[in-house]
């Protein structure tokens, strides 16, 4: 039997990421995830959406697919922006930001990787897909 899934299409407008987190909360409860797991998923989703909204320079919608599997929740955040080269994204360190001219932002990928069990990026000139997975630990 095909695994259940939920699909969202978000316009690029302020705070639309919160629609994604509300959906994630409902799915987390359905899957009996712990409060901490649900909060980590929501936080990672916020960062993936913000990246898609802000950094992709996408003019279209951002698509989010939630795939409910037996032992995990898989979330794909898909934009149709200009893409990015992950190898050129530096791991941020606060020591390099405090008291220096460096911009204070740029934490999204780091947070997603810390909060989810696995993260994969596929990106080219026609868009980016971030695939994030949270394993179920009951």
């Amino acid at each position: 039997m095909k695994q259940p899934s939920v699909e969202l299409r978000l316009p690029i407008l302020p705070n639309m990421e919160l629609i994604a987190t509300q959906t994630a909360e409902v799915i987390s409860r359905h899957m009996n995830l712990t409060d901490d797991q649900g909060a980590e998923i929501s936080m990672a989703l916020i960062e993936a959406c913000i990246n898609a909204f802000e950094h992709s320079k996408a003019e279209n919608n951002v698509f989010i697919n939630f795939l409910i599997e037996d032992d995990s929740l898989v979330i794909k955040v898909i934009d149709q922006g200009i893409g990015f080269d992950k190898t050129k994204v530096e791991i941020p360190k606060i020591e390099n930001k405090i008291g220096k001219d460096e911009r204070k932002r740029g934490w999204g990928l780091q947070l997603i990787q810390e909060l989810m069990d696995s993260v994969e990026f596929e990106s080219n000139g026609e868009g980016t897909t971030v695939t994030m997975k949270k394993n179920i630990k009951h």
Binding site: E17, M43, W107
Partner: peptide
């Protein structure tokens, strides 16, 4: 109960000013 990294980055700017 909910934050994003842009909001928290502004707290880093505040820390820097306070230093």
């Amino acid at each position: 109960k909910i934050v994003n990294s842009i909001g928290v980055s502004i707290l880093i700017e505040i820390i820097e000013k306070l230093q």
